[in-house]
């Protein structure tokens, strides 16, 4: 596969994810992930370095399957989460998409990107932002490109009130 074509595939799925989150199309969003996906937002250590071992160090979010993402959607849809009352309006920007490997092996695309998500709920009277970068592995499953792995490095880890998947 040409590099430019592979980059376009990655960019397409990341932009698609951004739009699904903005439009709160939760089922479509879930379908972008493989059932055995890794979704990981490592915490930062107090010495200023990033945690690297989820078995021995804290993560802000760590899911070794799509089940964790499904829980999020259940909670959002329950209408019983005070943090989700007046669910935030969000704008998800993704950019700086670069393939990590020149050679793509086994049909898997590895890439990094930068993101900034702005979110705002009227009751809070102020906008918030989460920004950072992410690494993804994209595979073909059921004739579609899907996210097999997403690791988010959240640069601003001083969390204001809450953090959820739609803030990333």
């Amino acid at each position: 596969m040409e590099r430019v074509q592979a980059t376009a595939i990655v960019r397409d799925i990341l932009e698609q994810e951004a739009i699904f989150l903005e439009e709160k199309r939760w089922d479509d969003w879930l379908s972008l992930y493989t059932p055995d996906c890794l979704y990981w937002v490592p915490a930062w250590r107090r010495d200023g370095t990033l945690c690297s071992d989820p078995r021995r160090e804290l993560s802000l979010i760590y899911y070794a399957s799509r089940g964790g993402l499904e829980d999020r959607v259940i909670r959002i849809r329950s209408g019983q989460s005070p943090a989700g009352e007046q669910l935030a309006r969000t704008t998800h920007l993704v950019s700086n998409v670069r393939l990590e490997d020149a050679e793509q092996s086994g049909g898997m695309l590895k890439a990094r990107a930068s993101f900034a998500t702005h979110f705002y709920a009227p009751k809070d009277r102020k906008p918030s932002i989460c920004f950072g970068n992410l690494r993804v592995k994209i595979v073909q499953a059921d004739a579609q490109w899907r996210i097999k792995e997403k690791i988010v490095q959240l640069q601003n880890d001083y969390i204001e009130t809450f953090l959820d998947v739609y803030c990333l």
């Binding site: 490592p42 915490a43 930062w44 250590r45 107090r46 945690c51 021995r56 160090e57 804290l58 993560s59 802000l60 880890d157 001083y158 969390i159 204001e160 009130t161 809450f162 953090l163």
Partner: peptide, 11 residues
């Protein structure tokens, strides 16, 4: 304390 910051604020 297991490494990893969990720091947040509320208003």
């Amino acid at each position: 304390p297991i490494p990893g910051r969990s720091v947040y604020s509320f208003r």
